[in-house]
Design a protein around this nucleic acid. Structure first.
Lengths: 264, 264
DNA sequence: GCCTTGCCACCTAGGTGTGAATAA
DNA sequence: TTATTCACACCTAGGTGGCAAGGC
């Protein structure tokens, strides 16, 4: 599945990089919330991209991840408070390049950045109770990838990555009512190998770019420039199914409050 | 200040309308949260509109209120849960019309609508704790005025009003962690006479329309059509000061989490 | 050669008042 | 006569990939 990457995602050798990386990696792996499950939605979409080779644009001001990372969270205690967040984990210790139509390893990965970590996107609704997160799909669409270690964007809004490196999205569930003790509270993390991607400053694979254009509504302007092969590619159009955002979930709850303050 | 309105906002006779209205009105007045205060921001802006005679467009799908109702909430208990909401209260028992350049009473007000009450906008962050609401200004910009009693918009997103009637915005603080018991929990309400307005389906007073055009960024397209008198009117431009939305407040909190997960 | 940056046209998504047409 | 509705052009606000230029 990933012949160019010597250290597979699940390989124990992923812990052998550096002291810093090792510590971070072991932290990623803590699973202290029994019964909690996080499922990545839109598997078909992710599979389409994965088959071509997923790339994600990274810019200094930050670029959204597409397809959207949308998950279904279950097993939380309804009345307890949680923080939902997303980060990425380096897939392996190598750097890549797109050469002669394919991705191939190309030297060692850059050492992990020592700058204050900007590697976590905090969901805007956090903290919120288990009932809230379980109400419907939880979308992390607002997360942005940046390659600027000096970015002044609010902490928790961007994820810092290195171009030409391969990453796996990771969703974290922290059991806490405060954003201030994420390091010490109980947590569980869930990575999604099907959403593995290579960060790029410009798309390398034309087929991948075409797939983005066909599926991202914001790229509609480029659809008429696609070749017929790209336009007719044997992939089903991604349904723009309604996102059940927490805010929308609240609205739905409100709608269930019948005859609210009905004047007789 | 309001010579055309026989029943002033604060008059006890406002409770004399009908049984339904009376009951509702007494409910508006419950003040059960000692020490809680709600202050309307942008007083200068509201005063400018008030001096001309504030009108608010009302449509079937719903129209936003401008200027924005933005408040500062204080006196809440940091750890307790609250719901912040906005409604309107009929200012007096009369209907109005704009005649010969001025607003004047024009018959009795319509009887209050018996339809399921759609007279409350629930802030999307609700419920949230006192700390959250106190963090910065709370904006109710998303509230929409509708004149469609059969609107299927989510409950809590629209406020139902009658055109040509005069209203006062009211902000409610409910002490509850659930949206389901607003009727029975402790509450306090705060009305803002300086934000009094007449609901209209089309602007009646050209000066008022000009004031909206000059100040609402979404109406910029109409600015070049204003007469010089309207453009040079002796009112200061409303600063588009950054709104400290609860979501932004969270971001700010996040930003204060220093060296979060710093890799050594 | 390889990668990154900044600017751009072109979208999505939705908030404005207008003015003509309609309704009461 | 008076009030309401609707389609509309024109904005705000911000997310796309492409492209030319620049950096190393």
């Amino acid at each position: 599945m990933d012949p160019d990457c010597e250290d597979s995602v699940m390989s124990p050798s992923a812990n052998q990089l550096t002291d810093g990386e090792s510590r971070e990696d072991s932290w990623w792996c803590r699973q202290e919330l029994v019964g909690v499950e996080v499922r990545l939605l839109d598997q078909d979409t992710w599979r389409q991209f994965s088959e071509v080779g997923t790339e994600m644009i990274v810019t200094k001001p930050g670029r959204r991840i597409f397809p959207e990372v949308k998950v279904c969270v279950s097993g939380l205690e309804a009345g307890e408070q949680y923080v939902v967040a997303m980060g990425v984990r380096l897939s392996c210790g190598q750097r890549f390049r797109f050469h002669k139509g394919r991705w191939a390893a190309w030297g060692r990965a850059d050492p992990p950045r020592r700058a204050p970590a900007r590697n976590l996107f905090l969901h805007a609704d956090a903290p919120a109770d288990g009932r809230h997160w379980s109400r419907g799909a939880v979308s992390l669409y607002a997360a942005k990838l940046t390659n600027d270690p000096a970015s002044r964007a609010p902490l928790g809004s961007q994820i810092l990555v290195s171009s030409m490196h391969k990453y796996v999205p990771v969703v974290h569930i922290f059991k806490t009512s405060s954003l201030l003790n994420l390091e010490s509270c109980q947590k569980a993390s869930f990575s999604f190998p099907e959403a593995e991607f290579i960060a790029v400053t410009a798309y390398q694979n034309d087929d991948l770019a075409a797939l983005k254009i066909r599926n991202n509504p914001f790229a509609k302007a480029f659809r008429n420039k696609l070749t017929r092969r790209q336009s007719n590619a044997d992939v089903t159009e991604i349904s723009s199914g309604t996102i059940v955002e927490p805010a929308a979930q609240k609205r739905h709850l409100q709608a269930s409050v019948k005859s609210f303050f009905k004047v007789k």
